[in-house]
């Protein structure tokens, strides 16, 4: 799963650094992800994992790190 998340971030996150260098707790917004890019990341995650994030999860904190994204995706796939 982490590999797919990193793939999505590499394609859509428009980060200022190489995705492979990121720790799973690195703040993605501090790493250069704009709110515009985070929307694309979210859309690509929904496509990749065939999920739809709940309204309550559509907030900055869900997408702020690889770990938080993983938790969000797991919550939706378990639901």
């Amino acid at each position: 799963m982490d590999q797919e998340i990193r793939q999505v971030l590499a394609e859509h996150g428009r980060l200022a650094v190489d995705v492979s260098s990121l720790d799973e707790n690195t703040d993605l917004f501090a790493a250069g992800m704009t709110s515009h890019a985070s929307v694309n990341v979210m859309l690509a995650l929904e496509d990749a994992f065939d999920i739809e994030f709940a309204e309550s999860m559509l907030k900055k904190s869900t997408f702020e790190s690889i770990a938080s994204i993983r938790a969000g995706v797991l919550e939706m796939t378990d639901a």
Partner: peptide, 9 residues
């Protein structure tokens, strides 16, 4: 935030 920060931080 600092000289090293991306434009949106």
């Amino acid at each position: 935030r600092s000289e090293d920060s991306p434009e949106n931080d």
